[in-house]
Design a protein around this nucleic acid. Structure first.
Lengths: 143, 143
DNA sequence: CATGAAATACATCATCTTTTCTGTTGCATT
DNA sequence: AATGCAACAGAAAAGATGATGTATTTCATG
């Protein structure tokens, strides 16, 4: 329960991938697809949303591809998830009018769930996530 | 994103409903259905899972219905959600083998999300949720 | 027994997610 | 200018899940 869709999970991995390769020029969706074992067509759809949010920059034509749109230390996981999946909503009643609102025994907990998740995802940066991967790769290279 | 299904949300409301009416004898699914504006057929399916977890007790035959299975102060929202929806899993890779496991940049944050949600839901009791509703009903009666 | 209510199983409908496909547009290289 | 690569756009197929309904069975009570 409380699952993210693949869009959110893939987007997070894609952002870390681009963060690690920052400065190496545009990366194509095909490169990402191969490295992360995802469908290039599906990556395309995710990129549309990341680009609209300014999280990645696209470069058309030959030698084109995608680069990260901002400093990875300033992009949070919350930004990425919001861009591709929309706001955190354990219960849909939280953004539509609900006549039980005033007396609903469950509403406060769902609101608290939103708060703790927004806090966690807001504190988690792409740069922070990338560090760990870089460290891992460093180890494997040193063998 | 990160939505609970109706099973979890309805189950929470049903448990609070039964907690408030504790001691008044078995409540039928039709009574719950009318009060909470849910389908009686769907309540039935939710009850199967709540019963299997010992959270409600069913009484067959005439004068039958459902009663709460334990002290509402000892039943947490986490217990209820686990019974009807299964464990909290932002990403499915958390319980299946994943070859990226060791180097995955996203896995730690999904694990942290599970932790903060389990903490929140584990601290929230049915009795606590019921209090609020009782208080609200008290206010409306006093007019 | 007869009755009312839960238990169980199965069928269906709706919605959302995920994936794939087809074509178009823009840019850099030659 | 011509060519090739890669993003862009939209559609639609495929799959999964959620939600609900129907029918039958089992059981406790009067």
């Amino acid at each position: 329960m409380m699952a993210l869709s693949t869009k959110g999970r893939y987007a997070a991995r894609i952002m870390v991938y681009l963060a690690i390769r920052q400065g190496a020029g545009p990366i194509t969706k095909y490169q990402i697809a191969e490295a992360e074992e995802l469908s290039a067509d599906y990556i395309e759809q995710i990129m549309v949303r990341l680009r609209a949010a300014g999280l990645v920059i696209s470069h058309r034509g030959r030698k084109g591809g995608f680069t990260i749109g901002q400093d990875p230390a300033k992009i949070t996981l919350g930004d990425v998830l919001a861009a591709v999946e929309g706001p955190i909503r354990p219960a849909p009643c939280l953004d539509s009018y609900c006549k039980r609102e005033a007396s609903c025994p469950t509403r406060p907990v769902w609101e608290q769930a939103v708060a703790v998740l927004e806090d966690l995802f807001g504190r988690t940066t792409i740069a922070g996530m990338a560090e760990q991967t870089k460290a891992q790769e460093g180890i494997s290279y040193s063998i």
